[in-house]
Amino acid sequence: MTGVTNSGILKGHAGIGKIVRGEALVASDNFSARYDLDRLKGVFSRPQHKLFGHSYVDKILILNAAKGGVASAWMLKEMVSRNMGPKALILNFANPIMAQGAAYADLPLLDRFEFDVTGFVENGDIVEVDPAAGTLTIVGEK
């Protein structure tokens, strides 16, 4: 793991995908595409999830850990193919399924920060994700 380089940049492990910039959707909860989402409507659909009812489409989705099953490996690209996916996925801890899904979908993915990434960014902040550098940068605060 690596750490914070200054107040606006959080450094993690090198990730997957291209540089993207967008609005953050953040919660200290976990993530599975099958368990948590209504992928046709583009919203969190599991009532117990902290983002229940929120749209994740085109957001930089920032959550704690990958949970659940293996379906996300296909589903991330399926969502992206319909322009109904998140713009990037940022987790404290990815699992292989999220890495495989991100690699297949060419969806930017970062994880393994020294500090809790869900406490670093606020909902609505504009952030930039640089997977090759392994950095998440706040470029505009809410």
Binding site: G68, G69, V70, A71, S72, A73, W74, K77, N95, P96, I97, Q100, G101, A103, Y104
Partner: peptide, 25 residues
């Protein structure tokens, strides 16, 4: 192995070695 149930059984009960390998992987 690409199902969480088959992976955990193969790893744990049978002592084989696999990560979760989702469909494309």
């Amino acid at each position: 192995f690409g199902d969480t149930g088959s992976t955990i059984y193969a790893n744990s009960v049978q002592g084989a070695r696999t990560n979760f390998q989702g469909g494309p992987s």
